[in-house]
Amino acid sequence: MIAEAIRTSKRAVIPYVTAGLPDLDATGEIIRALSDAGAAAIEIGIPFSDPIADGPVLQKASHLALEAGFTLDGLMSGLPRWSAGVSAPLIVMSYINPFMRRGMRETLVRLRDSGIQGVIIPDLPCVAAGILEVCRDIGIDLIRFVAPTTTEERMREVVSQCSGFVYAVTIKGVTGERSSIPPEVRRRVQEIKSLTDLPVCTGFGVSTTAQVEDLLSFADGVIVGSHLMARVMDSPDPVEESREVLRKLMA
């Protein structure tokens, strides 16, 4: 249960890791290391050739993973092993096209059967292709975004269709580390909380322990992606590096 895992975590940090970097075996080990280091949940990113919501770091990570030969079948064969071996719930983040290409329902069922508990789709603001019904039907959480530009009316709609947690985007822009997080995010998180009992997690731009600390004073969880992947890509030992990054953010 994603919501439960976030609620019961003392310090809910949700790391994002691009799958297949440097290879899929490493991804499996990174996931285990992150879970051991206390991740509340783990977001596994499916690399995509045209990641329009991502900044330079995650673009590069996507590109390198595809260059290294990432395939969906490879990922699917690793997932059951990974999910069985860790305590943190696993979430998959993917742009819509790879899901559509393989068939929406088939892909989601396959993910669920591999132990994936939730999905995040950054380019699906309108619930097309009946994905909402499919997710409810097969029992996988559909985590949805509330952006800084989201109107109140739309916020109600998004929150009512959301499960697992609500993803509150901290900034207008793409993913990537920022030196400061706009203070308005606090009010937005409170607004979302007044509409739902689901946990509300914040993400985009987070890189320091101080930022995590600050965001957790009003949000239920924090997602950290680019910061982690930048360190993973720079390190000769990505597994140990991941553990270290998370340990620091948890401190």
Partner: peptide, 12 residues
């Protein structure tokens, strides 16, 4: 067709 974009762009 459709609108497959990040949530941030939807109001725009």
């Amino acid at each position: 067709g459709g609108q497959y974009v990040p949530e941030t762009l939807l109001p725009a």
